[in-house]
Simulated scan of single mutants.
Amino acid sequence: MGIIFSVTMIILGFIGSFFSGLLGIGGGIINYPLLLFVPPSLGIASFTAQEVSGISMFQVFFASLAGVIAFSRKSKKSKNASLIHKGLVFNMGSGILLGSLLGGYVSRFLSGDSINIIYGVLAIVAVVLMVIPNKGKQQHEDLDNISYNRIIAIVAAFLTGIVSGIVGAGGAFILIPIMLTVLKIPTRTTIASSLAIVFISAVGGVIGKITGGPIPLMPTIFTVIGSVIGAPFGSRISAKINVKYLRYALVVLIAGTAVKVWMSIL
Rank of each mutant, 00 (worst) to 15 (best):
N145T: 05
A172D: 06
Q138M: 14
G226R: 13
V259Y: 12
K79N: 13
I152G: 04
S6T: 08
S194C: 02
L34V: 02
L23R: 11
S41I: 02
L217A: 15
T211N: 10
P40L: 07
I229V: 07
F158A: 13
A123Q: 01
F19Y: 15
I3P: 00
I185E: 03
G171M: 04
E51K: 07
G28T: 08
Y119L: 06
V68L: 13
L246S: 03
S56K: 05
G168V: 09
W262T: 01
N145Q: 13
I11A: 15
K77F: 14
V252F: 15
A81D: 07
I151L: 12
I30T: 06
S94Q: 08
P33K: 03
K86A: 14
Q139S: 10
D113M: 11
I10C: 11
N116Y: 01
G171F: 11
R150C: 05
P219K: 00
H140W: 04
I241A: 08
F14A: 08
T211S: 14
N80L: 15
G165F: 00
P216L: 00
F47I: 12
G205P: 00
I215F: 14
I197V: 14
L12C: 10
Y148V: 08
L175I: 02
G168Q: 00
L97M: 06
V261E: 01
I191M: 03
L122I: 04
W262F: 15
W262A: 08
S114M: 13
V7T: 06
Y105F: 13
G165Y: 09
F233G: 12
P40G: 09
I254G: 02
V60I: 12
F199Q: 02
A192G: 10
T190C: 09
V52W: 02
G226E: 11
V182P: 00
A202V: 12
A63Y: 07
V60N: 07
P186G: 09
S147D: 14
K209I: 05
K135R: 14
P186F: 05
V38K: 09
I166V: 05
P186N: 05
G87W: 06
G21P: 06
H140T: 11
A239G: 00
L143H: 08
Y32L: 04
I154N: 14
G103E: 08
A156F: 09
F109K: 02
I15D: 05
V131F: 15
W262Y: 13
A70F: 04
T8R: 10
S78I: 11
L110I: 01
G28C: 06
I241M: 01
R108C: 11
N91V: 15
L266D: 01
P219I: 13
T160C: 15
V38M: 00
G103T: 07
L253A: 03
Q139P: 01
L110W: 02
S46H: 09
I96L: 08
T223Y: 03
L129V: 06
I69P: 06
G54N: 02
V251I: 11
